Simulated assay, not measured.
Amino acid sequence: MITIDGSEGEGGGQMVRNSCALSLVTGQPFRITNIRAKRSKPGLMRQHVTAVEAAAAISGSECSGLTVGSCDLTFRPGKAQAGEYHFAVGTAGSTGLVLQTVLMPLLLAEGRSRLVLEGGTHNMLAPPFDFIERCFLPIVNRMGPRVSARLVRHGFYPRGGGRIEVEIEPAPLVPVACVERGAFQGVSAQATYCGLPGEIPLRMLERARKDLPDWEEESFAMRKLPEDQGPGVILMLEADYDHVTEIVSGFGQLGVPAEKLAKTAAARMLGFLDCEAFAGPYLADQLILPFVLAGSGSFTTVKPSQHLRTAIDIAQRFTGKSIKLIQQFDGSHLVSVE
């Protein structure tokens, strides 16, 4: 059994999610202690419990310690089975993070699957649905499987209530090299909101225009959703290339000025545009699982985060693969599975 100290490395819920996914694929049981020990509220949160429950439900796995607040979890994997599954996170727990837990095992299962996930679709500390659909899944589809995702209803923090539907057609993962972005296609900025005064997304866009002076006026847009899908607001800045798309988000937060959120998002987008790396920091995190399960492959990314280094460590422990992280002359970093 693999034993993991959840206080090491990045120390967040990613360690639980990736361990469950890799356990199902490799057949190796694991125990993780000191779960989320570095967080203000240690232990499993509702969305982590749902993610592990989902992993168990698609495979008949056994687990102990699976309660909200638990800091010690043991997981004994079964075999992932294709099928139709419905999981509700509750409140605004991230649907995307539950998907991250079960996607790889179902990609390698025998037969098509369909997932209905309810909860948060656009909330802090998790990739928004748009990122999953336009940044992450196109890379997965390039590797052989066919995955499509549809946003049925937005779910903002703290209310939640969102719904996404995912269709999965499995196939062996084929190694790919993702080191070039390809030709630049364009940029856009969209402030999506509901249940809030229109001045809030407008202030976000005005600040983003100030910090992104080279972007055309028509690149900026507001989108109002039905009142019952909120309250909530998110600014999404998007850069499209032939081979990759990057989306940087700024989520509305109580007590944080709209201008500050937009300024931070714009600075992150400018940092990506100014470098040559294929993947931004959040896409890099998510690429570790498909790349290590493909057996080999490589991609370039920006300065590695502790999140990425922890994902690499967990993947190596379950698969025995060597994953190298080498800085390049242009300042980017090459992640290669050997």
Rank of each mutant, 00 (worst) to 15 (best):
D242F: 06
I200M: 14
T3Y: 11
F30A: 05
T264Y: 01
K321V: 07
G271P: 00
D228R: 13
C71A: 06
H243S: 14
V68S: 05
T74K: 07
F299Y: 13
L287T: 00
L235C: 07
E246Y: 01
A149R: 03
D214W: 09
S40I: 09
P213G: 03
I35G: 00
V337R: 00
G162L: 10
F75Y: 14
C71V: 06
I35T: 04
Y157D: 11
A294T: 08
P128F: 07
L24M: 14
G12K: 00
P172H: 11
Q327N: 08
A21R: 01
S332L: 02
F299W: 08
R46Y: 04
D130M: 07
G11V: 00
V335F: 04
Q316T: 09
L137N: 00
R134P: 03
L115S: 11
A191T: 06
S298N: 02
A284P: 01
Q28M: 11
G65T: 03
V147I: 12
P105C: 13
S113G: 12
A183E: 15
T310W: 01
L273C: 06
I2F: 08
A191N: 11
V244T: 13
E216I: 04
N141K: 06
R309N: 13
C275Y: 01
T310I: 02
I314F: 06
E118Y: 08
C275A: 15
R36W: 00
K321C: 10
T50W: 01
E227N: 10
A82H: 06
Y157R: 15
Q47H: 15
L125K: 08
A126S: 15
F329N: 15
M269G: 04
L117F: 10
S64K: 10
M124G: 10
P304K: 05
L325Q: 13
E246R: 12
L66R: 02
A88R: 13
D228H: 11
Y241H: 13
I323S: 08
S322I: 13
I312G: 03
F136K: 02
I164C: 11
T101E: 09
S148P: 04
S298W: 00
A315E: 02
A239E: 10
S296A: 11
A56T: 01
D240M: 06
I326R: 12
R207N: 08
T319G: 04
D242I: 04
D130C: 10
L44I: 03
Q28C: 06
C194W: 14
G69E: 03
L22E: 02
Q100E: 12
T300W: 09
C135Q: 03
